[in-house]
Write a protein that binds this DNA or RNA. Structure first.
Lengths: 204, 204
DNA sequence: GTCTATAGTTAGATAGAC
DNA sequence: GTCTATCTAACTATAGAC
C-alpha cells in the first residue's frame, strides 16, 4: 500500500470515529507516519482527502457488495427449490459480520452515520447503501422465493424489512462491542430462526 | 424561556446536525440572538454547554419516557385480557412519532448518534436509551402478555426485538424526510400488522 | 516526497466598558 | 447580561531546503 492509499485508510479510520471536523490533518499525518505538510503532496486539502475517501471507499463497497450478491442470486446457492433455515442463518450472519467487521465496510458505515445529518450527499449514500439498497435487494430475492413457493407470504417488502431490520439494529448494538461478536451472532440466529418459523412451514 | 435555556436549545439543534466540533460558539450565539462572548456569562466554556445539554436533555428524556410508559403498564390501556391490532399500531406509532418528531427527542437522538463513536459516556447513553432501554421495557410488557395468553410465543426478548427493530430502522430511514411522515406511518403499520399476524391468532 | 519553518486564519475565551 | 476589542492557541496550508 503506497502513501497515498495509506492516507485514505488512516483518514477513514479517524473520520469514522470522530467525524470530519474533529480530525486534524496532523492526526492523519501522524497515523500515516509522516508530517502534516507532506499530506499536501498527495491531496490538495483536508476536504480533498475526505472527498477521495468517499469516492474510493463507496466504489469499493459497491464492488464487494456485487461480489457478495452473485452467489445468492445466480441460483447456485439458492436453488429456489428449498432454502434451509441454516442457510438463511448463514446468509444473514455473513451480511451482518461483513458490515460489522470488514475494515472498510464498518468504518465507512460509521463515517456516513456521523456525517449524514449535515451533508445531503453523504445522506443519500447512507440511504442507498444501508436503508434502501439492502431492502430492495432482499425484496427481489424474497419475491422469487415467494413465486417458487419456498416462502409463504405475499408482501416482499414487509418480508425484506422483517429480515433486515434486526441486522440493522444489531449492527448499531454491537458496533462498540467487538468482543461480543459471539453474543451478537446468537442474537441474530434467534431472529432468523424466528423469521423462518413464520415464513417457512415449521422450518428444517 | 430564559437566555440560559435558549442557549441549550439552540446548541442541541446545532450539535444534532453538525456534531460538537463542527459547531462554533459564534453560531450558537447567533442562533440565540446574542454575541459569542455573552455566552460565557451563562456557561464557562463550549464543553460546558455540551455537558449541560447532555445532562438537561437526558433527564428530560427520562421523564417523558416514564410518563409515556405509565398508561401502558398500569393496566388501564392494556387490560391484559386482550390487545387489539389497532391498539398495538397506535402504541408503535406513538413511540415512533415521538422519537422522530419531538423537538428534544429527535435532536437528542441524532446528537448521540453523531457523538457516540468517540465518546464512551455518550455511547452508554445512546445504548441505554435506544438499544437496551426500549427492548428491556418491551420485553416486560410482552412477558406479561404471554403470561396472560394474549400473545403467543415463548421468548419475550425475540418478540421485543421483532416489535422494536422496525421502529429503529424506520427512524433512521425517515430522519431526513420529515415530509414523508404519512408514508412512514403506513410502512410502520404494515410491520405491526404483520407482527400481529404472527403473535395473535389471526388478528382482530 | 519528506522535512522545517512559517504564513494566514479562525476558533475559543477573557477584559473591561456600559 | 450584553457589547467591542483583544488575546492566545490551534489548525490548515504554503514555501522552500534537501
Amino acid at each position: 500500500m503506497n502513501t497515498k492509499q495509506k492516507i485514505l485508510a488512516e483518514a477513514l479510520s479517524l473520520f469514522s470515529e470522530k467525524g470530519y471536523s474533529a480530525v486534524y490533518v496532523g492526526e492523519i499525518a501522524e497515523a500515516v507516519g509522516i508530517k502534516a505538510p507532506s499530506l499536501y503532496k498527495h491531496y490538495k486539502s483536508k476536504q480533498d482527502i475526505f472527498n477521495s475517501c468517499v469516492e474510493v471507499f463507496s466504489q469499493r463497497m459497491e464492488k464487494i457488495r456485487n461480489a457478495m450478491r452473485l452467489p445468492e442470486t445466480n441460483g447456485a446457492d439458492f436453488s429456489y427449490q428449498t432454502v434451509s433455515t441454516e442457510k438463511l442463518v448463514d446468509v444473514a450472519t455473513a451480511l451482518f459480520l461483513f458490515y460489522l467487521q470488514d475494515d472498510v465496510a464498518a468504518k465507512f458505515r460509521k463515517m456516513l452515520i456521523i456525517e449524514r445529518y449535515h451533508n445531503p450527499e453523504i445522506n443519500k449514500l447512507f440511504e442507498d447503501l444501508f436503508i434502501k439498497g439492502v431492502i430492495e435487494h432482499e425484496e427481489k430475492i424474497f419475491s422469487d422465493l415467494i413465486d417458487a413457493k419456498v416462502i409463504k407470504g405475499d408482501n416482499p417488502h414487509v418480508i425484506a424489512l422483517r429480515f433486515y431490520t434486526p441486522i440493522f439494529y444489531l449492527l448499531q448494538k454491537y458496533d462498540m462491542h467487538p468482543d461480543k461478536v459471539e453474543e451478537a451472532k446468537q442474537e441474530l440466529t434467534l431472529m432468523v430462526r424466528e423469521f423462518c418459523d413464520t415464513y417457512k412451514g415449521s422450518g428444517k
